[in-house]
């Protein structure tokens, strides 16, 4: 148990410190790196409570895909040079909004955690048959693809619509760009490509273009 708690406090300390550093650090790229560190240690915590599937999926989805896109965006912004003055001028302008959002999340957490602690029957209103012999990959699949299949599909559809929306908003058909058409290239015949001309001497050929 000692080793268990040592590891637990180690990972939670890293999570908390990196979460603080995400907001505190001046360089945005650094804060994304701290975010990644936070994700990794959260997935370590997941693995420690035996939810190895969640931990791995957290690594694959958040660290392997989402955070890479974050990094792309942030690196392109190049805030490093202009960053400091923006922060100094408008340090307190976003404070009220941030405070309100923070308070809402805090109260939600209090409600959920206290409900979980003092009235467990609120959380587990529709009882799910949980078999502890199964691996947790199996048990997540059993719940997700049977009871919650419609919600699962719906969330997938929402993501798809968001993706299509982002593409539609940013896609511009520009003229003046030479694009390759593979079918056109492959199906080119000799007739359209080469023409045989009888050249009279001292006259040359007139090429029409």
């Amino acid at each position: 148990m000692i080793a268990h708690s040592i590891f637990f406090y180690f990972f939670s300390l890293i999570t908390i410190v990196s979460a603080i550093m995400v907001t505190v650090s001046k360089n945005t790229v650094h804060s994304v790196f701290f975010l990644i560190l936070g994700f990794i240690s959260v997935s370590c915590l997941f693995i420690m409570i035996g939810a190895e599937f969640l931990g791995m999926v957290m690594l694959i989805v958040y660290v392997g895909a989402v955070a890479v896109l974050f990094l792309f965006v942030v690196m392109m912004l190049n805030v490093a040079q202009q960053g400091n003055e923006i922060f100094q001028n408008s340090r307190y302008t976003h404070l009220p909004v941030g405070l309100i959002i923070g308070l809402i999340i805090f109260f939600e957490l209090i409600i959920v955690v206290s409900g979980w602690k003092y009235k467990p029957d609120i959380i587990s209103s529709n009882s799910i048959n949980f078999d502890s012999n199964l691996t947790n990959t199996h048990s997540i699949g059993m719940v997700l693809y049977t009871e919650y299949i419609h919600l699962f599909q719906l969330s997938g559809m929402i993501l798809l619509v968001a993706m299509v929306g982002a593409i539609v908003l940013t896609f511009k058909k520009r003229s003046g760009i030479k694009r390759q058409s593979y079918i056109e290239q492959i199906s080119r015949e000799k007739i359209s490509g080469v023409s045989l001309v009888n050249v009279d001497s001292y006259k040359g050929v007139k090429i029409d273009d």
Binding site: E52, M56, T135
Partner: peptide
């Protein structure tokens, strides 16, 4: 248990 996911991650 999740060896292949680990490799992928």
């Amino acid at each position: 248990n999740v060896g292949i996911l680990y490799l992928f991650a």
